[in-house]
Amino acid sequence: MAAKRIEKTFMTVLLIAGGLLMMIPFIWMITSSFKPENEFTAVPPTLLPKEFTLKNYVDLFTKLDFIVYLKNTLIIVFWSFIGLFLNALAGYAFAKFEFPGSKKLFYLVLATMMIPGQVTMIPVYLLINAMGLTNTMAGIVLPGLVGAFGIFLFRQFMSTIPTDLMEASRLDGAGELRIFFRLIVPITKPVFAVQGILAFIGAWNSFLWPLIMANDQKLYTLSVGLQLLKGQHGSDFGLQMAGAAFMVVPIIIVFSFFQKHIIEGYTISGMK
């Protein structure tokens, strides 16, 4: 029994030590974001601020346009939820309807997963340019609106819904859209939860495409704005840390609340 206790203690210590190593950048970011500027050049650097200040956070909104970046990021998040519903609708059709070409079209959807982003990046830019949508929100949002992986996950989960349920509603005279929103969506809430969180994280973090598309600061997202801040205020570490913390903390809060669903989500997808 003693050996077992030693083992357990050892594993716990290892767990905490590894966790602390993973946490260093986060801890350093949070504590530094409350430091006044003169403490950043201090040797040796201190973990906690000697003088606590919120100035860095205030500056994000007064000196810089973080409120605009936040608004744009939230618009992208909103559209990603619309995309989520389009994925769900397509997944539903592939799972529960038989129609000519359904198999072939589904394979086509899956095939798009294998195309690397670097190959499509340039032609998509040329396409958006030809449509006259560069430097618009539509140009930023449209290319990533739907995704094969999302469609695939919805299809997998919705295949398990008994078809009788839908037949019963049809006999009651419910329209197909009504069946989808009133019957299918409530049943598949767990997948919507997982996909919703992933969509939120993806949209909140979206960086490369807004960077390519937006010439105008009015369209910058938080991450593009932070990249600009990194370039323009390269030595103002306090401001940088506050900007980074402002991006990272909301995600961590959302994730901590829903982490159980995300981990379950990977079990749903059949990853064993």
Partner: peptide, 18 residues
Amino acid sequence: RVVYYMPSITNIVAVAVV
């Protein structure tokens, strides 16, 4: 679990800054 997963969901620009 959350601690080990956190870096995966952290924005790349924020990561670069820190």
